[in-house]
Computed example of a mutant assay.
Amino acid sequence: MIGLDAFLARGRAAAEELMLDTITLYRPGADVFDRDTGQTVPGPPAVIFYTGPARVRPAQLAVSQVQAGEQELHLRQYRITLPYGTQLPDSGERPAAGDVADVNASPNPRLVGVRLWVQGAQYSATATAWRIIAEERS
């Protein structure tokens, strides 16, 4: 088992070297009414799962088109890779569909400010990183 542990440690270190982006992964909180503006605005996050380095990359080149209400949305799937050792919040909650990842910084300026909606997460004891499937909606 020592061989496997050393192999996984090297793989995890290599995966982290590719994490050049910075994200915040969170569960959106309830919207709140702003009496000054008369508008409903997003409230603070209900749970913050992670803030830090990540690798954000497209999962596929194709774009899906869906109808939402009377508006057409374009969906692009992404893979978010986080360090394997990322801890869950004290509550033990795990990211779920509908949670959000905001790209805060990236060497690619076109990626900064992109909001991704979590579709699912992958877990494995022999993974080199924690992978999350998300989509961009535009």
Results as ranks from 00 to 15, higher is better:
Asp5Met: 10
Leu8Arg: 10
Leu8His: 09
Ala9His: 05
Ala14Cys: 02
Ala14Met: 10
Ala14Val: 06
Met19Asp: 10
Leu20Pro: 02
Asp21Leu: 03
Asp21Gln: 04
Thr22Leu: 01
Ile23Arg: 01
Thr24Val: 15
Leu25Lys: 00
Leu25Glu: 09
Arg27Glu: 13
Arg27Val: 05
Asp31Ile: 01
Val32Glu: 15
Val32Pro: 02
Asp36Val: 10
Asp36Ile: 02
Gly38Phe: 08
Gly38Gln: 07
Ile48Tyr: 00
Thr51Met: 04
Gly52Asn: 03
Gly52Leu: 03
Ala59Lys: 07
Gln60Arg: 13
Val66Leu: 13
Gly69Asn: 14
Glu70Arg: 12
Gln71Asp: 14
Leu75Asn: 05
Leu75Ser: 08
Gln77Leu: 09
Leu82Asn: 08
Leu82Gly: 06
Pro83Leu: 06
Tyr84Trp: 14
Gly85Tyr: 07
Thr86Tyr: 07
Gly92Trp: 06
Ala97His: 09
Asp99Met: 04
Val100Glu: 10
Ala101Arg: 05
Ala101Glu: 03
Val103Asn: 06
Ala105Glu: 12
Pro109Phe: 03
Arg110Lys: 09
Arg110Thr: 08
Val112Met: 02
Gly113Met: 03
Val118Arg: 02
Ala121Phe: 01
Gln122Gly: 06
Tyr123Gly: 04
Ser124Ala: 15
Trp130Gly: 00
Ala134Arg: 04
